[in-house]
Design a protein around this nucleic acid. Structure first.
Lengths: 253, 253
DNA sequence: CAGTGTGAACCGATTCACAGCG
DNA sequence: CGCTGTGAATCGGTTCACACTG
């Protein structure tokens, strides 16, 4: 869906399915953990369990990247870490700016997962003049007026929006005008962007609402007779942790 | 994917596709905005634009709920708000607990989107004794020791984990043992839970990594000749904002 | 012979296109 | 006549099952 129309119909050399791309970070995390424990190789079965997917899917995913395994043995952990990092573009480091330094923005700024993996928080930006200069996560907050200069000076192409919903579109427009081409949006709004700009959305309340839906189902089904809930032994580790599970949601808009 | 095996093979009365469920909150938000502006009816086209999806998908989605529209006219905003709220189970209100009151936990506690839509933050829980008693978003933080009691006293069935990765599984186990059956996990770990418990995951760094992948693609393709990037007129509002775009990711695990 | 790599079957979701209705 | 509702076509992704290989 997302990857809408006319998204590169040609130059279709190595087309990795979006669903696969969305899982690569998952594999990468699991592999990194193995790497830290100096595990040399893993089987698809083991790695799949660690990443929370099933092994057939994992093997299929890797087959899109190339044949990096050894039959009868498994995958070389270090090698795979490298290949996936490269595929995701994490061998270079990406400067990102975070706009909107409220609780959420601060949480993002402090989030270790960014710095550790190819991302560098180039600047924190907020509209509140009182915030200007204050350090958050060791980085001084700068005023929105500086936005364009910051983007350009640092060659930023990825922006994170953590502002209130009302400000999001305006911030988005300025980011895009200044040269940002990928946006991670935490504000609960639909952003409209020109063609060629990718937007991903993370929406906290939507996730809860989806859980509520399923929760309601569970409650309703107790009554509905039937041998409901087979209640197979606890701790069924195998199944998909369906991350965002999902489908990517990137769109040229 | 997520909705793995043997998930209610029977009692298949009103089966709403997971992909549709994941979009209902989106429609609901757009409808709420229209409702506040006292707009009485919308066409599928208009509503789809406001929600960031295409109209065919929206109509198909609504068709799973029933025939709530009027041909030649559109949908009644108020009525639809009610129907979707009911379908999502938001007419009742769900007490939730947030475990791990760091920056992220605090951001979640302050997040207006929860309280406004069927959710009530019943308690904030943190392992740090120094946090105990401190109010965050007007709610006093309680110590982890109280977790089981809090869950039971408040009949909490939905828990939010915003702890560091290392603590997540342990917290999860305790939540589940105390009776929680839906978990929203912000910690970058794969949680394993018994059958019948739903887990949804929100992972900040994964989203960025997916953006990086696409960003890298864009950079690479400039060189690769070809009439790349047709650059259709700016601000293409129609296309999917593919929210989490996604596929649900709920799993009985 | 254990475990990868992959064609083929399957399944759910999206899109198309138009019949049906207010 | 305009817009909904939906069967049919299509697409992308997942699962199956097994041939192949180190």
């Amino acid at each position: 869906m997302a990857t809408g129309r006319t998204h590169r119909p040609a130059t279709r050399s190595r087309g990795i399915p979006e669903a696969t791309v969305a899982r690569l970070p998952l594999y990468l995390r699991a592999l990194t953990a193995l790497s830290e424990r100096s595990v040399p190789t893993v089987s698809s079965e083991e790695l799949a369990a660690a990443a929370g997917v099933n092994s057939a899917k994992l093997r299929k995913d890797f087959s899109y990247l190339g044949s990096y395994g050894t039959r009868g043995v498994g995958y070389d952990v270090e090698y795979l870490v490298y290949q996936i990092s490269r595929e995701l573009g994490l061998t270079q480091d990406w400067p990102v700016v975070i706009v909107g330094i409220g609780n959420l923005g601060a949480a993002l700024a402090n989030y270790g997962g960014f710095a550790s993996r190819g991302f560098r928080v180039a600047a924190l930006i907020d509209a509140d003049p009182n915030m200007a200069g204050k350090p958050v996560a060791g980085i001084p907050v700068q005023h929105t007026d500086e936005l364009e200069r910051i983007i350009q000076d640092n060659g930023v192409s990825i922006g994170v929006i953590a502002t209130p919903a009302g400000a999001a579109q305006q911030v988005c427009d300025r980011l895009v005008a200044a040269g940002v081409t990928s946006i991670l949006n935490f504000a609960p709004t639909v952003l409209s962007v020109p063609d060629g700009v990718d937007v991903r959305k993370v929406d906290l309340s939507i996730e809860l609402q989806i859980l509520a839906f399923h929760e309601q189902r569970k409650a309703g089904e107790e009554a509905a007779g039937e041998a409901a809930v087979p209640a197979a032994a606890g701790r069924g580790d195998s199944a998909d942790q369906g991350p965002d599970g999902d489908v990517p949601a990137v769109m040229p808009a």
